[in-house]
Computed example of a mutant assay.
Amino acid sequence: MPAEIQTLGSLLRTWRERTDPKDAGVTGGGRRRAKGLRREELATLAGVSADYVVRLEQGRFRTPSAQVVAALARALRLSGSETDLLFRAANHLPPGPSTVAVEVPPAARRVVSRMSGQPLAVYTADWTLLYANRMMCALFDLPSPAEAVGENLVVRTFVDEVSSKIATPKGGNEVFERALVADLRLSATELGEDPVFQSLVTTVRDKSPRFAALWDEGRAAPHSAMVKTVHNSVVGDLTIDCDTLMVTGSNVRIILCSAAPGPDSEKLEALRARVLASAA
């Protein structure tokens, strides 16, 4: 492999041009003169500006933050080895056992692809969204799957204060907030030295006194099953079970939602029919 392909800019350009827009969740966009993602599309998926992507590819900026590198790796659907290479090209240590995993392992991908009928999402250990299917987006009034990727649940909960408007956990929002922070605290035992993880905790602590108070309590526990009443704009309120499935060999987790037989499952089925109709 020529040496120039190992630079950050050339790697980004090569991987952007090989990425199928449909695989990245990008639809439409009109007639394309070239294969792959456009710079504007990659920028949107990674949560940066198009000009920023241009400067990276042209080598005018070579030191993006680890958080940006992770977002670019997710947007480009890079493999583990490719993600490592991208991190090293940007002068960062690649993700490992003590860093936040930024890809869905192949076995988990197969599971996810077979469960498209149920609301499902995949999160990193710091609760950044790696993947959400259309049912999950419809249930929680999220943007399209492509637009939702990269959003952080901790930020949405404590900084944007959006989560409490779309779902109320059984026992009140405090139950969910405590569970979320306790899980993040547990992850800190393994990921506390990861700059991406550190940046998230520091940023949210500075912006949310509520998060800071819960963090300082020091409670650590894995996030488990939770019952929520979702305030859905299409089918109205419905009560669902949200289960957390940990992926073996990785620190990503799958969130799977379901409803018990009865009125709530009927509402979920009505939402599923609407999602299928919109995709037809």
Rank of each mutant, 00 (worst) to 15 (best):
G25K: 02
F61V: 09
A89H: 04
E161K: 12
V100L: 03
A73L: 03
P143T: 10
R74E: 07
A279Y: 06
T7E: 07
A280E: 08
N152L: 10
L139W: 04
N133W: 08
A213P: 03
K228S: 03
V175G: 02
S10V: 03
G96R: 07
D243F: 02
P169K: 01
G36H: 07
A148E: 12
L214S: 06
T63D: 14
N173K: 01
M115I: 12
R32S: 08
G30F: 07
F61S: 11
E151N: 09
A107F: 11
W15M: 04
Q67T: 15
E151W: 05
T83Y: 00
H223Q: 09
T63S: 14
L268D: 00
P222F: 11
T99C: 15
A221Y: 05
P97V: 10
N173Y: 01
A220V: 12
A279M: 12
A259Q: 06
L85Q: 13
E161T: 11
L11C: 04
H231K: 11
K267Q: 03
R62S: 15
G117N: 11
L180C: 04
A182C: 06
G117M: 11
L276C: 09
R156H: 06
P145I: 02
S208V: 09
L93R: 15
S79L: 09
R134G: 05
V204K: 01
D160C: 00
G25Y: 03
S98N: 14
V100N: 00
P263H: 08
V48Q: 01
R210P: 00
V54P: 03
G36C: 12
T63P: 00
R62P: 01
G80Y: 02
D264L: 06
R114S: 12
Q67V: 15
R274G: 10
R134D: 15
R39T: 05
I5G: 04
R77S: 12
E151Q: 10
R32C: 09
D20C: 06
K165Q: 14
G249M: 06
G28A: 07
S250A: 13
A75S: 14
D51I: 02
M136G: 01
E40D: 10
G29Y: 04
F158Q: 01
V196D: 01
I255D: 05
I254N: 00
A146W: 05
V69K: 03
D84G: 06
A101C: 11
G25P: 07
A138V: 10
L142E: 11
R156Y: 00
L191A: 06
M135Y: 02
F87C: 06
F211Q: 04
S163T: 14
R185Q: 13
A213T: 13
V235H: 08
T14V: 10
R219Q: 14
K267D: 00
E17I: 07
P261F: 11
R39K: 12
T248F: 05
R219M: 09
V162M: 08
A188I: 02
A43E: 01
P261M: 08
Q198Y: 05
A3M: 09
H92L: 05
L142T: 02
R74I: 11
A279F: 05
S233W: 03
N133C: 07
A34F: 13
E82C: 08
P94W: 06
P222E: 10
A75C: 10
P64W: 02
P21H: 06
S10P: 01
G9Q: 02
V181R: 08
V252P: 00
H231P: 00
A188C: 13
A73Q: 08
Q118Y: 13
E103R: 14
